[in-house]
C-alpha cells in the first residue's frame, strides 16, 4: 500500500436493514476518505446513520438481515468482502473499535487482563508471559492506577471511567492502525469524559492512529477531530475541517444545529430551534431529506437529492441552494 492512498476509503456505501416489515434505509450513499493519522468525527443525531457507517468498517452487520452496497477499503483491504478467518484477522489487528458502554462490550466473566491476553494471543505468536507483560504495559499506557492489581479485576469491579480506559487498552492490544470509536464518552460524567478525550487525543498522536469517532456532541468533535462529517438521514450533508464547520457552516442543517445549542444563548431568550423531527428511514422523501424541516427549502429540493458541492478547501456540502444562501 502506498502512503498517498487514504487509510480508509468508503465509496457510495448504502446499508439497508431488511429484517423488519419495511426495509430501513440507514445509510444512503456515504463517501468518505480518511488519511493516515487523521481524526474524523461523524456527527449526527440518532438515526442519522453514523454508527451504522462505523460498524460497516468492521463488517459487523448481520448478513441475513442487511444489504450493503458500495465499497469500504481500509488499509488496503476490501472490508465488505472479508469473511470468516480473514475477517477475524482484520478485526482488532488492522482496525478495532471502542463502544459507548464498556460494561456491555467487555466480557463480564473474564478479568480485564485475561481479555487483553486473549486478544494478543489470537493475533500473534506470543507466549503467555509475553502477552501478560504487554497487557500490563497497555494498562499503564491508558493510565489505570495500580495496573498490576487491575489486570485481575473483573469489569464490574471498575468504575465507568476505568472501564472505558480498559476498553481502549483492549482495542489497542494488537497495535491496530485504525481506531473506531462509537460515542466513547457519552455514558461518562463530564469530569471523566474530558479525561478520556484527552487520552484518546494523546494515544492518537503517539501511535499515529487513524481515528473515526462517532458522536452526537459537537463539543466532543471539537476537542478531538481534525475534520467533521455531519450526517443526516444516512448521508453526509457537510464535511470540512473542524474550524470551518464551527465558524463557517454551509449546510442549513449544520447551521441549525449550531444555532440551536444552548451554549452561548442568552438566558431567558428563545433558542433558534430546528422545527420538526428527523425523518422515518423506512419512508425517506425522494429529494433532500432535510427539506421538510429546512427554512430555505424550495420546490427543487423536494425533487432530487443534491450532490456534494465543494465550498472551500476540503469543505463540501450537499445543498441545492448553497450559492443563493452564500450570496444572501
Amino acid at each position: 500500500m502506498n502512503d498517498a492512498a487514504p487509510m480508509i476509503d468508503i465509496r457510495d456505501l448504502t446499508v439497508t436493514f431488511t429484517g423488519g416489515r419495511k426495509p430501513v434505509h440507514a445509510v444512503n450513499g456515504v463517501t468518505l476518505s480518511v488519511q493516515r493519522g487523521e481524526v474524523v468525527a461523524l456527527l449526527g443525531e440518532s438515526g442519522s446513520g453514523k454508527s451504522v457507517t462505523l460498524r460497516s468498517l468492521l463488517n459487523m452487520h448481520p448478513k441475513h438481515r442487511s444489504r450493503l452496497n458500495g465499497s469500504v477499503i481500509a488499509a488496503g483491504q476490501d472490508v465488505l468482502k472479508l469473511s470468516g478467518r480473514a475477517l477475524a484477522d482484520y478485526r482488532g489487528r488492522v482496525a478495532s473499535m471502542i463502544f459507548q458502554e464498556p460494561l456491555l462490550a467487555l466480557d463480564p466473566v473474564y478479568t480485564v487482563g485475561a481479555q487483553i491476553v486473549e486478544a494478543i494471543r489470537r493475533h500473534e505468536k506470543a507466549t503467555l508471559a509475553v502477552a501478560q507483560a504487554r497487557a500490563l504495559a497497555l494498562l499503564q499506557k491508558v493510565r489505570i492506577p495500580s495496573p498490576e492489581r487491575r489486570l485481575q479485576a473483573f469489569p464490574h469491579e471498575m468504575s465507568g471511567g476505568m472501564r472505558q480506559r480498559a476498553m481502549i487498552a483492549l482495542a489497542l492490544a494488537c497495535n491496530p492502525q485504525i481506531l473506531l470509536a462509537d460515542e466513547p464518552t457519552t455514558a461518562l460524567d463530564a469530569t471523566v469524559q474530558i479525561q478520556i478525550l484527552l487520552l484518546l487525543r494523546e494515544l492518537q498522536r503517539e501511535l499515529g492512529l487513524t481515528v473515526i469517532l462517532v458522536t452526537h456532541d459537537i463539543g466532543v468533535a471539537v476537542e478531538v477531530a481534525d475534520r467533521v462529517a455531519v450526517m443526516y438521514a444516512g448521508r453526509i450533508v457537510e464535511t470540512g475541517p473542524v474550524r470551518e464547520i464551527i465558524r463557517n457552516p454551509r449546510h442549513p442543517y449544520t447551521q441549525g444545529l449550531l444555532a440551536s445549542r444552548a451554549h452561548d444563548a442568552m438566558s431567558g431568550a428563545r433558542l433558534d430551534a430546528i422545527p420538526g423531527a428527523p425523518p422515518d428511514l423506512a419512508a425517506l422523501p425522494p429529494g433532500c431529506a432535510f427539506a421538510p424541516r429546512c427554512r430555505f427549502s424550495a420546490a427543487a429540493c423536494l425533487a432530487e437529492a443534491p450532490g456534494s458541492v465543494a465550498v472551500g478547501p476540503q469543505h463540501s456540502a450537499r445543498c441545492l441552494r448553497l450559492a443563493e444562501l452564500a450570496a444572501a
Partner: peptide, 25 residues
C-alpha cells in the same frame, strides 16, 4: 470550577489541554 472546566471547548484553537480532575467520583 473543575466541573465547568471539564465542559468541552467549542473553539478548535482553544482545546482543553489538561483534565481538571483525575479519576471518577
Amino acid at each position: 470550577a473543575a466541573l465547568l472546566a471539564s465542559m468541552p471547548a467549542m473553539d478548535p484553537d482553544a482545546r482543553t489541554e489538561t483534565a481538571p480532575l483525575y479519576g471518577d467520583p
